[in-house]
Each structure stands twice: as structure tokens, then as C-alpha cells.
Design a protein around this nucleic acid. Sequence first.
DNA 1: CAGCTATATCGATGGATGTCAATCTATGTG
DNA 2: CACATAGATTGACATCCATCGATATAGCTG
Lengths: 122, 122
Amino acid sequence: MCIMGVMNLLQTAGPAVDASCCVPSSKPALSVEEAQRKALVFKALADPNRLRLLSIVKAEESGESCVCDLTEPLDLGQPTVSHHLKILVEAGILHREKRGTWAYYSLVPGALDDVAGILSAL
Amino acid sequence: MCIMGVMNLLQTAGPAVDASCCVPSSKPALSVEEAQRKALVFKALADPNRLRLLSIVKAEESGESCVCDLTEPLDLGQPTVSHHLKILVEAGILHREKRGTWAYYSLVPGALDDVAGILSAL
DNA sequence: CAGCTATATCGATGGATGTCAATCTATGTG
DNA sequence: CACATAGATTGACATCCATCGATATAGCTG
């Protein structure tokens, strides 16, 4: 709260009365838990290499990519790519399907739209 | 790239020929610079307290809030709140206007829609 | 089963980040 | 001008995180 001095405690008029900076509104903000949960999704998107991973997966005709084709264009080690993919899966953005030796990653349908929904519902 | 052994180097048929995991597609992914720039926006959103700040500012009738009314509901120190607000301003999400003693923060019109646009344009 | 390959996991490490206390700057008041 | 307040900046510190090398796991092939 803004006090601005004693604010002419009992003064009847004058600009000092309007000197409080604003009305607090006291509407309930996002709860701590909800904010944390939503921040997790944005954390998953808050890395350039993860954005590039999503871009590649999304651009793939078949809708899915395997790790071995994601390692090279990002110029990152295979463990690092696996790490990023895991974060995207845990955020609910990517889906992982293992077929034989390879693991295929694809966008969860509607996941990015859901993120956009978080923004408009802030 | 996936090699899967010598892959029957000169063999004429059999499942081994189709054993490569996928076609690389080689479409140009998001450039490194672009990815970094977009990641900065998500980094700004990737903190629960910053999401709560946005929520409060957005819920304000007047469309703007001053720092003093943002410090209390978040239960954070004033320097920390100033720090978060600065990050949101630098990300182009909040607008800062100083009037007299107080600094008022408001959502940049369309900024959150732009973020949603980044997602759909990935 | 032995060996190879794709991928995941682990441990370590350097760098980024959130938070606070202290301080600085600017504005308003007497 | 002296003083108080709103807010920003600085420096320190603890924690988190991206990355890598080494290793483990799982599936294929002979």
C-alpha cells in the first residue's frame, strides 16, 4: 500500500486525499499452486533448443521424429536432446512412442493451443 | 542419422532396407537467433510470481497497477517485484509509465496474443 | 548368447536466475 | 533545504538448469 507520508491524516480536502497511488482491487490473483503449474509449461518452452525441437517435430510430414534425426540439426549431444525431449513430454507438449529400437516423438494434439489458452485466461 | 549396423550393405531385399528410423526431412528448423529471441518471451513467463503479477495487472479495472500494490499480494520484497516487472517490460509484455512518485504497469495491448502467435507459428 | 545400435539415465560442472539487504535516485512535503 | 517515500539498482548468495562424458538399458542381428 502507498501511504505517502502521514497523508494529512485527518485533513478534509486537498489533493493529498487522492495521493494514494491506486486502489488495491484485492481480486484474488492466480493461486500459488496454479501459477506454479502453469509456469512449468512455460519453463518447458523457455529454451531455444526446445523451441527448435518443437519446430522440427511440427514440420515433419509424418508428424513424428526420432531422436537420431533431432540430434544433428541442433548440434547437441544425444543425452542433452533426450533431456530436452523428456522435459517437453513431462510438460504435456510432446508424446513419446517407442517402436522397436527407436523412439518417436510427436506433438500432443491441441497442446500448443492449450498453452495459448493459459495466456488468454490469465 | 540411423544406420542400424551395416544394414546389409548390398542386400537386395528384406526388412533391413526399411530399417532406417525415418527420413530427416531436412527442412530448415527455427534459426538459432530466432529461437533465442522467442525463448526470451517464454522465459519471462516461466516464473510463477511473474504469472501472478500479470494476472493481477490484467484483473485491475483501470488496466494498470503500481508496484506498491503488487508487492503485498505476492509476499515478495520490493526489489524482487521490481526485478520481475523489469523482465516483463523487457519481454515486451508490460508497459511502464511513471507518473509523479509512482510507477504504473499495464499490459501491452496484444502482447499476449503475440505470444500465442509464436506458438502457432512454430 | 555375443555384439552392435538407439536411447535413457547418472554425476559433475559452469552458468543463469530468484531472492534479499543495502543503497541510490527521484519525487513530493514542510 | 531537510526529510520522507516510491521505486530502481547493486552485490551477494543459494538454487536451478543446460550441457557433457560415462554408463546403463533395450532391441536387433548374426
